[in-house]
């Protein structure tokens, strides 16, 4: 597919990648954004990290535009897509940035908050999460990304699988080739190979 004059579904097109510290959220947003920059889009990314890396929720706001720079914080209720590396983080993000037309791609593997570990708080069941996400989105894809990543030999690949899935969604003109182009700048050999595999797995996850 050659994308000449691609018209964004909305401008800016707003993506939120959410997860928990240590899940590779920042890397995912960088990779995705670089793919889009190479396609000629103007990108603004806003990131929340720092202390929040230590067990807290981490969010990247990505604004894709053909016009210019936007606020690094997406306004409330204005997310177009939410990519969640941790399932309940999708729910949390929807409460602030969701609307009935939002698409949600969520990894299924929980990372339990301390309060849940101690028994003071409750973590919802897979079914409950699914119902909530369905109710609050236009379309939902639940992806066993971490399990697949473990299958590939490294759970950290979860983020790449999720990016692959998002690419397949077809909302933005990004393909495997764009991914390769970005990854080639920093990786070679086995490392590059395994990342490509992860990306492809993600794309396949959306087909089924």
């Amino acid at each position: 597919m050659i994308v000449k004059k691609f018209k964004l579904p909305s401008d800016p097109y707003n993506i939120i990648i959410t997860g928990v510290g240590g899940q590779g959220n920042v890397m995912a947003s960088r990779v995705l954004s670089n793919m889009l920059v190479n396609r000629g889009f103007m990108i603004t990314i806003g990131e929340t990290f720092g202390a929040s890396q230590r067990g807290g929720a981490v969010m990247s706001h990505i604004r894709v535009s053909s016009k210019g720079t936007w606020s690094p914080q997406i306004p409330k209720g204005k997310a177009d897509v939410i990519i969640a590396l941790e399932p309940i983080e999708a729910i949390r993000v929807l409460a602030a940035y969701g609307h009935p037309g939002v698409f949600v791609l969520a990894n299924t593997r929980p990372v339990y908050p301390v309060g849940v570990i101690t028994g003071e708080l409750n973590y919802p069941s897979r079914e409950e999460i699914k119902l909530s996400l369905q109710e609050l989105s236009a379309q939902l894809w639940l992806i066993d990304a971490t399990d697949q990543a473990i299958g590939l030999g490294n759970p950290i690949l979860t983020n790449i699988i999720m990016i692959g899935a998002f690419a397949k969604l077809g909302k933005l003109p990004i393909l495997l080739d764009d991914f390769i182009k970005v990854m080639e700048q920093t990786l070679t050999g086995d490392k590059l190979e395994i990342n490509l595999k992860a990306f492809t797995l993600g794309m396949e996850a959306l087909e089924t």
């Binding site: 067990g55 807290g56 908050p113 301390v114 849940v116 409750n122 999460i129």
Partner: peptide
């Protein structure tokens, strides 16, 4: 459904 995520070591 989204229990608070307290910071932790």
């Amino acid at each position: 459904k989204a229990p608070q995520r307290g910071l932790a070591f």
